[in-house]
């Protein structure tokens, strides 16, 4: 009897250890599972590693995108084949699935190709996210052969990553009616929001490491525009951000919180609990108003 009990305890312990390993796979672990050769393509040298201090050496001018999320490290390698231009593989450890999704979401311009937990392919560039990892595979000149190689390498790397993860919870607050799903962008910092929709040079919305936000496009019968939702640590922070936003952008609408800008587009904003939400670039007043009211209804039932 005692032996059976010990065996059961032992089995549970082994399973727990294995489970913990599968959630803590590293770039090294993943890199080991990616073949150095496939379909005549050969890896050029070993993986190069970059961290937060050295990433700019690899992508001069573009590193800030990753640094604006919780980027931890990256592995980079090239594959070559005969006369074809090389394929560059970047695998980024973004610390969390939310941040991997965030980096992926800001530049979705192509087609979903069913790789990873979300993918985007356009003209020789494949991007996808899975678990806490974001992957970019690029061939500078797309041919039938290089495109096939990019997609195959993508599937190989997809298989090499065991972990999966959930996209940011804040996405579940987006109203479904009229949502353009490929337009959803997740961010933390105001530098990213400004690239999606420029608000102001200064961080009037008080965004930072502890905030999370989403912007999405909507098109409905009552108009078109963007919805912005930001979650703060406290209702007090959300209220302060609301005041900052109104003072910076629509100071004439302190009471109504809805205004038409000089380009003819409408802005409406509100804060409920820990959340700030705004209709931006709205083609019609009714659209902006309705979107705000919809968000009020959604957030009524949300705790924190």
């Amino acid at each position: 009897m005692k032996g059976w009990i010990m065996w059961i305890i032992y089995s549970i312990a082994v399973c727990a250890i294995m489970a913990s390993f599968s959630y803590s796979e590293t770039l090294h672990d993943i890199a080991k599972r990616i073949p150095t050769e496939f379909d005549g393509w050969r890896a050029e040298g070993d993986w190069r590693h970059y961290d937060r201090n050295t990433l700019f050496q690899h992508i001069d001018g573009g590193a800030e995108l990753y640094l604006a999320y919780r980027f931890k490290g990256a592995f980079v390698r090239r594959y070559l084949k005969g006369g074809e231009m090389g394929i560059t593989v970047d695998i980024y450890d973004m610390s969390s699935p939310e941040d991997a999704f965030g980096v992926f979401s800001v530049e979705c311009y192509g087609d979903e190709v069913g790789i990873g937990q979300g993918s985007d392919y356009i003209e020789g560039l494949l991007r996808f996210w899975k678990g806490r990892f974001f992957v970019s595979i690029l061939t500078r000149l797309e041919t039938d052969e290089s495109k096939a190689a990019v997609l195959k390498l993508g599937r190989l790397i997809d298989r090499a990553i065991s972990d999966r993860g959930e996209p940011p919870k804040i996405l579940s607050l987006l109203p479904v009616n009229g949502l353009k799903r490929r337009s959803v962008r997740f961010f933390r910092k105001h530098s990213i929001l400004n690239r999606i929709y420029f608000i102001a040079d200064k961080n009037v919305l008080r965004l930072g490491d502890e905030t999370e936000g989403v912007v999405a496009e909507y098109e409905r019968k009552d108009g078109k525009g963007l919805l912005l939702i930001v979650r703060y640590s406290s209702a007090k922070d959300a209220k302060a951000a609301l005041n900052g936003f109104i003072n910076a952008l629509i100071p004439e609408a302190k009471r109504t919180k809805i205004a038409r800008l000089e380009d003819g587009r409408w802005i409406a904003v509100e804060a409920v609990g820990q959340f700030l939400f705004a209709a931006l670039d709205a083609t019609k007043r009714g659209f902006a108003h309705n979107l705000i009211e919809t968000m009020r209804g959604i957030l009524r039932g949300v705790k924190g």
Binding site: I59, G61, G62, L65, Y66, T88, D90, E107, Y109, I122, E123, G124, L125, R127, S136, L138, R140, L141, E142
Partner: peptide, 10 residues
């Protein structure tokens, strides 16, 4: 430009 390297010949 798209992607981390912000370049495509296209």
């Amino acid at each position: 430009g798209v992607g981390p390297h912000h370049f495509s010949p296209k």
